[in-house]
Write a protein that binds this DNA or RNA. Structure first.
Lengths: 252, 252
DNA sequence: GCGCGGCCATGATGCAGATCAAGAATCGGC
DNA sequence: GCCGATTCTTGATCTGCATCATGGCCGCGC
């Protein structure tokens, strides 16, 4: 609610930046886990041509806002982004965290308007991929079309996992599951799966997991006391992977 | 858990039925809200050719099962279906209810294997649409491709609404929201939005909404007592639409 | 038409996590 | 490198829903 006070630095949409940053998928070390993974070398250039890159988003800047016209889906190149929707009484519900190599914004397709908002959790570089171009391209590139279907399908199954987590699991289980998810996504990017810095606040974690800040704090403290984690503010070290897995696997 | 006892009548997959039932999209009164809505008259025949119809599923029969190979998405023609996934400790989480004209099974695309199961809540006629054919077709029919993207996107936004409901709303709010959702989906099919029969049990409702059977019963009783609903077993009448909307709209 | 099994309703009690409150640590701006 | 704002931690208390328990109901098979 008082979150609203942060809305000071909302930027114009990405595409209004005329200056294109010199990056391409060819040399991007995320290409093996991002959109290009579906595309062979010679087709990559066509994708390359439609992707727009712009100056990085600063922490707390908006990538897109609920209700704004849908034009692009986005790939995170660096940093981290949270997706959320605002309820009618003004509270927000965090629906996902997005790390480098991950795609967001696909919920805007059905209405031609974004159904959620996205905000940078830290300074983040983002690739915008205009969806109408992508659609045209994918009609002639079956592997791209398939990959897009798969991406959306994965988003659906992940949302269903979250639904299950929220309706069946205890606070400890929810937190353990989130930490393991972040750990495995780090591993995918060849980062440490056992030691990392959380880009999001306790409030965001609690919001995402359907818990209060206090509960998140308590779970972290408890897990620190039992030797499962070492917690130093946002710095997390998983000391006992097995125990954490056990805590998470009770019900999923 | 004791749900398992119902698993008596599982059928072979739809496509093993050689006998095709004489139905087509052209004459189906759901065509305006189902897949064909995206397709013009002359292209419809091609879609028609790939759709498989088979003998109706009986109550409690499985349409597809978690982990089974993904081949088709499904459209409900009559009856009602519930989607659910089984947690590692054997409990089930209902992830959605599907009524005539609605599409399910898209969560299977990402892995080529179904991420959830689907079971008929009552005798139900189902159209199976082989996905590889649909994919090929959609590469040459932009409006179909777009419609598929939109369908999946809608599923994502609906899952996000459920996530919000589960993590922010009280028992009353959840139940009210579900009833209004069913009412409006009835209206889309030109059925009464104020009087209908619930195809699912209280257990399924509770499971879907992250509540226990007892709580569902109590909420129904309470709403009956306050004159918002008339409840007669599965038969529901919405007496005070405004009040119900108010109860639901507290937070979404 | 009777009996049995699954489904539903309702009351009594317990508990996980929310809420309220207050202090400590950290961050960001100058 | 200091100060105010924000974020985080920890404790005390409260509460909505789960859990446990019981009885009624409804539908179905014989």
């Amino acid at each position: 609610m008082s979150m609203r006070l942060q809305d000071v630095s909302e930027t114009a949409p990405l595409r209004s930046c005329t200056h294109e940053y010199k990056v391409n998928c060819e040399t991007c070390r995320l290409s093996r886990i991002c959109l290009p993974l579906a595309i062979n070398h010679k087709d990559l250039e066509q994708l390359e041509n439609i992707i727009q890159r712009s100056k990085p988003l600063q922490k707390n800047e908006l990538l897109y806002h609920e209700g704004s016209p849908f034009q692009s889906i986005y790939a995170v190149r660096s940093g981290a982004v949270k997706g959320y929707r605002t309820t009618s009484d003004g509270r927000e519900q965090v629906t996902g965290f997005y790390f480098p190599g991950e795609i967001l914004g696909m919920d805007g397709i059905s209405n031609n308007s974004h159904a959620s908002s996205a905000r940078a959790l830290e300074t983040s570089a983002i690739c915008a991929i205009p969806f109408d171009s992508l659609e045209r391209l994918s009609a002639s590139m079956p592997s791209l079309q398939r990959h897009l279907f798969q991406l959306m399908s994965r988003e659906i199954t992940e949302d269903q996992l979250l639904i299950t987590l929220l309706s069946k699991n205890s606070a400890d289980e929810r937190v353990a599951t989130l930490l393991l998810s972040i750990a495995s996504r780090n591993a995918r990017r060849n980062l440490s799966a056992s030691q990392f810095r959380l880009p999001m606040s306790r409030v965001d974690i609690g919001n995402y997991l359907g818990l209060t800040v206090e509960t998140i704090s308590r779970v972290f403290s408890r897990m620190q006391k039992t030797g499962v984690l070492r917690v130093d503010n946002k710095e997390i070290e998983i000391l006992d992977q097995e125990a954490l897995q056990l805590a998470a696997n009770i019900a999923n």
